[in-house]
Simulated scan of single mutants.
Amino acid sequence: MATKKQALSKDRIVSMYMNYTLEHNEKPKSVFHFTKINDFTEAEFYSFFGTLESIEKEIFIIFMDKTIEMLDKNPDYQTYDMKSKLLSFYFTFFELITANRSYVVMTLKQHQNQLKNIMILGDMRKKFKSYISEIITDDYRTQQERLQEFQEKATTESFWFQFLLTIKFWMDDSSAAFEKTDIYIEKSVKASFELMNIVPIDSLIDFGKFIFKEKIQKK
């Protein structure tokens, strides 16, 4: 009796793409090549994705969506303040990508031009900034009475930049269980929130010392 062919789905294509990339240490050469070795048609592929590059972007969207889904399942999460929510987001997100570290590092280092690598995160950037806007609390808006729309955009952009720096630190982190990334997250998020409240000195100095120590040790 013939084995029933597994139904094709977006998640299955993503899984096949990641497996191919890791097993061959490179991306598929073309949609034709990718579909042929995985026994489905180009027409089926295009019903889910427009290009191979769009799969790469989708993978990071999946990491983002899964992180938020896991956070929302925690009944205590909605009671957290903004800082605690962001810390929870960071630790959950980095736990997910650490489970897929080989693929993530390979993808974000595939081009010598760092801008091209960052562009892969373009769609995730929109979701991340939307997430930041959602967790900005009324208390924060009240404290910043002059907070205008452009200032809120600046806030979400600054948190995105911090997020990119954290990914870069994690990619370079060789400590056991990536414990230095955990320290980096705690210190950088604390410093960011104190900057927002215009009382930054202690945390910024502490964060600066940590970064300086890490850079010196690697030289």
Rank of each mutant, 00 (worst) to 15 (best):
A2I: 13
T3L: 14
K4Q: 11
A7S: 13
A7C: 08
L8H: 02
S9A: 07
D11I: 03
V14L: 07
Y17A: 06
Y17C: 03
Y20N: 02
L22I: 14
H24M: 10
K27E: 10
K27W: 08
P28H: 01
K29D: 04
K29L: 05
K29E: 06
K29S: 09
V31W: 00
F32G: 11
F32S: 09
F34W: 00
T35C: 05
I37D: 02
N38M: 01
A43L: 07
E44T: 00
E44F: 03
Y46L: 06
F48E: 01
F49K: 00
G50M: 11
G50A: 11
E53W: 01
E53C: 07
E53Q: 14
S54N: 08
K57Y: 06
I59W: 04
I61R: 12
M64W: 00
M64A: 06
D65W: 00
K66L: 03
K66W: 00
T67S: 00
T67Q: 01
I68D: 01
E69V: 14
M70R: 13
L71I: 07
D72W: 10
K73F: 10
K73W: 10
N74R: 04
D76G: 05
Q78G: 03
Y80P: 02
D81I: 11
D81V: 09
M82A: 11
K83G: 00
S84I: 15
K85F: 02
L86Q: 06
L86S: 05
F91M: 06
F91T: 02
T92E: 07
F93E: 00
F93I: 02
F93Y: 14
E95P: 04
E95R: 14
L96S: 06
L96Q: 08
I97T: 03
I97L: 08
A99Q: 10
N100W: 09
S102L: 14
V104P: 01
M106S: 12
M106N: 09
H111W: 11
Q114F: 13
K116D: 14
M119Q: 14
G122Q: 13
M124A: 09
M124Y: 02
M124H: 04
F128Q: 02
K129V: 07
S130V: 05
S130W: 07
S130M: 12
I132G: 05
S133K: 15
I136G: 04
D138E: 15
R141M: 10
T142G: 07
Q143T: 14
Q144D: 12
L147A: 02
F150R: 10
Q151V: 03
E152C: 09
E152P: 12
K153E: 13
E157K: 11
S158V: 09
F159V: 15
F159S: 10
W160I: 09
Q162A: 13
Q162N: 14
L164I: 12
L164W: 00
T166R: 00
K168F: 13
F169H: 10
W170K: 01
W170I: 04
D172V: 07
D173G: 09
S174K: 15
S175P: 06
A176Q: 15
F178I: 04
E179M: 08
Y184G: 01
E186T: 05
K190S: 15
F193H: 06
E194L: 10
M196D: 10
M196Q: 12
V199T: 15
V199Q: 13
I201V: 15
D206N: 10
K209Q: 12
E214S: 08
